[in-house]
Design a binder for these strands. Structure first.
Lengths: 102, 102
DNA sequence: CAGTTATATAACTAGTCAGGCATATTAAGT
DNA sequence: ACTTAATATGCCTGACTAGTTATATAACTG
């Protein structure tokens, strides 16, 4: 099973994620926008599904794909410790935020 | 040239990045910690160098590697729009932050 | 200089994977 | 039932790549 890192390494999959980020849509729309063969798109959609980044639902003969960004959290968390490198002020900021939570 | 996404897709390279995140160190230390062959480590270090995620300096016969997290910014920026999915309150929070900047 | 240490590079191999085409599946329309 | 539309799957091929072994490079040591 592909990790979120693996999934994002593929440019086509990133494109699809970006498109789904704009809103759910059927496969055909993605095929149009990406200007790729339908099987190629369906193949990447499968990867996205299996990695939890996309969910499908049927609607007539169409399959509507929707983004599930939850797995990106993992990536975000991995990234968190390094954020301090380019945003040295972040720590102080986050503390402020935490204290504001309620 | 490998993108930051490509670089992070490789578990070994993530490990190296994490290790370098703790502080700069020579190749031999990485070889020890990762329990991998020296050429394997050197090869990944080359990828990290060429993608801008690591910088080297000589120190005697040793090569000291240091993390340059700057390219991770790119990834962070790509991720930013999706953050709203799992942190719906983030927008409001960021506005608050922006207004506090000074 | 000879030997040793630290690291890089080259050549090879085995595994993976994206996209192409052909085909299967499933649903709608007539 | 037959045809068309929408999507998925299977097979193939070419490209890429991680790690291995062997070798090269470069710097210290005596």
């Amino acid at each position: 099973m592909a990790t979120t890192f693996d999934v994002l390494a593929e440019p086509t999959r990133r494109r699809i994620i970006e498109e789904l980020g704009k809103g759910e849509c059927p496969v055909s729309t993605l095929v149009d926008r990406l200007k790729m063969s339908q099987p190629a798109v369906s193949k990447q959609l499968r990867v996205l599904r299996e990695s939890g980044l996309a969910v499908v639902r049927r609607e007539g003969q169409k399959r509507i794909y929707r983004l599930d960004a939850e797995p990106l959290k993992e990536l975000d968390q991995w990234l968190a410790p390094f954020r301090a490198y380019w945003e040295p002020h972040l720590d102080a900021l986050e503390e402020t935020l935490d204290s504001m939570e309620d």
